[in-house]
Design a protein around this nucleic acid. Sequence first.
DNA 1: GTGAAAGCGCTAACAC
DNA 2: GTGTTAGCGCTTTCAC
Lengths: 361, 361
Amino acid sequence: MTKRQRANSAPTIHDVAAAAGVSRATAARALGGYGPVSDDARARVMSAADRLGYRPNRLARSMITGTTHTLGVVIADIQLAFFAQAVRGISDAARAQEFEVILANTDEDRAKELAAVDVLIDKRVDGLIVAPADSAQTAHLAEAQRRGIPVVLIDRGAPGLRCDVVAVDNQRAARNAVNHLIRLGHRRIAIVTEASTALSAAEIGRAHLPPAGQMTSVLRQAGWAAALRGAGLPVTDELIRTARYDRDDARAATAAAIAGADRPTAILTTDETMTLGALEAILEAGLDIPGDISLVGFDDSPWTTVVRPPLTVIAQPVYELGAMAARRLLARVAGDDSPPGPVFLDTSFILRGSTGRAPEG
Amino acid sequence: MTKRQRANSAPTIHDVAAAAGVSRATAARALGGYGPVSDDARARVMSAADRLGYRPNRLARSMITGTTHTLGVVIADIQLAFFAQAVRGISDAARAQEFEVILANTDEDRAKELAAVDVLIDKRVDGLIVAPADSAQTAHLAEAQRRGIPVVLIDRGAPGLRCDVVAVDNQRAARNAVNHLIRLGHRRIAIVTEASTALSAAEIGRAHLPPAGQMTSVLRQAGWAAALRGAGLPVTDELIRTARYDRDDARAATAAAIAGADRPTAILTTDETMTLGALEAILEAGLDIPGDISLVGFDDSPWTTVVRPPLTVIAQPVYELGAMAARRLLARVAGDDSPPGPVFLDTSFILRGSTGRAPEG
DNA sequence: GTGAAAGCGCTAACAC
DNA sequence: GTGTTAGCGCTTTCAC
């Protein structure tokens, strides 16, 4: 079988060229929209192309140009509302420049992250957006950069890596929220946070955390501690309630916190999952919000206004975080080599019904 | 510059072969794990490979093998919990067989869907999972199939397309839920659904809908109507409350429904967004749930147990829907050519506090 | 403006 | 078991 007899396989530029009676180079120029082509040739090529149902093979093109018009996105879990929104922002910004998105979930597991990054490099993505599972171990990301693949971090930074980071100032946001509680007269303000990143009262006292160099929950905890210290209030281990990253464990941790003798009068939760668990525990205990206890947490989920009372929350511009990360990455892909650094988007403190004056006594 | 002097570009199989002192073919065989290679040669190749930091170029491989180990996933919006969960299921099932996932959002817009499918075909994905925006217009999907790309539909079917569909039986699920309300004595049971797909009372009376051939909301509406008719209850336009697909509009539609003289004693909502709006309206109206009005809706969102009362819901196995779709698609990619058809996964009716006996009168 | 020819990095016959 | 050779479908010099 000679080369031109592949009757029923997809038409290539070769077939189009033959049908149009021009050379492959001319057909390619017309189809690809580069280089000089006469109007006549272009017209013949175009009509041949759609008569044959020609579609360019982007793999072949990528082999030569070295660019795939594809971004790799490596996050913890697309099922978490935070990442779903961020990915939508990324996807829209990418799409606006004709880039596609390959998604990988890590479940905050470094091994999965390594594997994902490797595959994405092998697939020759043009850039990588990563929410790194471990801020301290980023050799694989440095390696990607070394191979010419720009990396933008989202949600959390990595001190050891020279790259762009798009995040919010978690310490500041938490500090603001806790300051608000303090102004309402609260003195015992607990935090319900992830065990895997939580620090003890002693540790959080010493810690000096860069604003984008850690997992968000530690930063939020640090902000909480800073606010307490700033008001001269004690930061004790009893106020630090940790749970596996799981709603039910957050419920149990909160239940334990409010069962004690010296019940906190307010609780800060570090994200939606923790908030859900904490709220459940408070409801089950039959406590009045905010009469007996105030509740404020990160993330303005849609449901926070249909619970009673509606929740006071710290909202992040999640979609924008994603869109911004993608835009920065795309700029890098396009050759921008200005010095990389963090970009902080503003959070907003949304005052609703779950925070109120501290109960007497 | 001769061919071997590309000092600082990524090492290719050629470089590895040279370093190991074997031919490219041998190096390729060792690296790719195919064909016969002596232990000695393999060892030398492997050590040369990781000394040089060799990584295979999957684009080049795909050019030859014709497979990219990539699935295209075309959905409405990753920000909707339903799709986020489904995509996680898809991603995990794909990953289990070393496939990656490219994501595209359509916002139920056919033009965006067409564009996405085109790009994915051009990128030579091995298969496509699609939640089609329009069940009636699927020429682009048939075209993908014609080009040898298997297609699996998720969440909704398309009567005109011969392919696998993974969904739930929405009519049946809705009918069951409404039957439950009927057994509780309800006679005026309204539905809050999307305007874009809703049928009038007259239309829904005549409609004969295939179980997987439509958008889910019509099917749910049909199930609702079937239950009413089955109990000899009237299906009137007054009971059909439509809204843009948007929580706030659902709130307004519900507010109008419960403001009238002949207030429904129960409401069925067709998904999380509608439920959120409906619940908000009921709370704002100060009605007691379920004393004044019962509420049941599709989708068992995490927050449905922290509102008071907790919501009775129809739960779909969303993650499994995704995983199943991916597994079927992967089977097709692997050559399975058994007759395609729909697969229905079971929903579950979760009885909680938002449904109760119909009020007297 | 157009064509011939080389080659991206890899796999797959086919000899030996 | 190993090497040689011919492509995959495209872009890109470089002549003409």
